[in-house]
Design a protein around this nucleic acid. Structure first.
Lengths: 218, 218
DNA sequence: CAAATAGTGTCTGTTAGACACTATATG
DNA sequence: CATATAGTGTCTAACAGACACTATTTG
């Protein structure tokens, strides 16, 4: 019995929702694109969450902003070696961390892929990604998740754009702002971002301690 | 490493949402109330879903109407014997099956408990039940799930009552019926149920092939 | 035809969506 | 002070919730 964990790591890049895939170095599925995953280590990991964080950190050097259990994939056939259980997760990070990760700088065996234009993938990882994309898009409608794809401080126009990129459809500006007021998960830093010959937007950050809000955006 | 599966089996009884708990016969937690669970058997089970169905059938004799993966609970401490993974599920059945199950008739080591008045439970099963109740109540608002708690054929007043019992709050009759029309997951059998000196309600059944609808009730 | 329950219509306040508008800062 | 973008107001159609009403069947 194989007990493992796999994580769908999302970020926004080039105006698109992307996922990190890693090129497998060993059989099975050597050379194919797969999720960031690994075996659960009972000696090291106190819980499934620990496993996910440990493996993310080890394989990408990234400490994520948001991490949530997605679903467990388990069957006799998903791994040719043996009956296999994988606890799948999805995580959200700002794209900056990809530039600052020492681990990723030392290899080119990884790539960010548009979630709507994925390559062939090993195991049942395509199914896992599709499941995660569906969950993220759905949950974005009534939560503050999208905020975790941005830098710690961001402007409302940036957040607005992020929603449109995740959902792949336009979001009305006044609806967007009305909803944000109801949600109330942001706090104004007082600072503004200078851009050019125009009105500079305020910088906001996520309030501490919240992950999910309970109303509908869109 | 222990790999197991546990199921929260819901039904409606005495106007209340209840869960089946089983009194444990062995250590650990011998004599305490626990969920219907067991070990994954790689030789017998093709998938996690197969495990859940097999264990339900073996321990309760019940074939459920609806079964959905809930969440996976995994840690070093949840089972005193070893590091343990449990893939948790929730299932919905009509109360009738408890009377017709031969397996359950041959033992009294089980009981149905009000979800809002649970006994002390072994392992982390209390947490699992709470998680399942939350999921069921939430999903009931925008799905046809509640229908799976009823008999194959049921009346609209029965379904209405079932919603109120699951949600533990009144549901306006005209809103209820308006929503059902939008959802469109029922078909009229043409039959009616005779009760007494009053207008007999029509009998409906769930349309084949659907499990989840996508609008909001309540 | 009275009683009881099934089932429908109607009114009101709230909200999503569309879009026009005002405010603010900079070169 | 022109320009560009930030941010707000307003109108309309749809819908949830409350509740009164009509319809149907049986003893």
């Amino acid at each position: 019995m194989i007990t493992s964990t796999d994580c769908v790591l999302f970020t926004l890049h080039e105006n698109t929702l992307k996922v990190l895939l890693i090129k497998r170095e060993h059989e099975p599925f050597k050379g194919m694109w797969t999720l960031c995953g690994g075996f659960i280590q009972p000696e090291q990991d106190g819980s499934d969450l620990d496993s996910a964080n440990r493996i993310l950190l080890k394989k990408t050097g990234i400490q994520v902003n948001y991490l949530e259990q997605l679903k467990t994939f388990a069957s006799a056939k998903r791994d040719p070696r043996d009956w296999s259980i994988s606890i799948a997760w999805y995580a959200l990070v700002n794209h900056m961390v990809f530039d600052s990760s020492v681990v990723l700088q030392h290899t080119n065996q990884w790539q960010l892929f548009d979630v709507d234009n994925l390559p062939d993938m090993g195991f049942d990882h395509r199914e896992i990604v599709d499941c995660a994309v569906q969950r993220l898009r759905n949950k974005s409608l009534y939560s503050s998740l999208v905020g975790y794809l941005l830098n710690k401080e961001f402007t409302l126009p940036e957040l607005h754009q992020a929603y449109e990129q995740v959902l792949k459809e336009p979001v009305d500006n006044s609806v967007f702002r009305r909803k944000l007021k109801e949600f109330d998960f942001l706090e104004n830093t007082g600072k503004k971002r200078k851009i050019g010959a125009s009105c500079p937007p305020s910088l906001y950050r996520m309030k501490e301690g919240l992950t999910i809000m309970n109303k509908v955006i869109k």
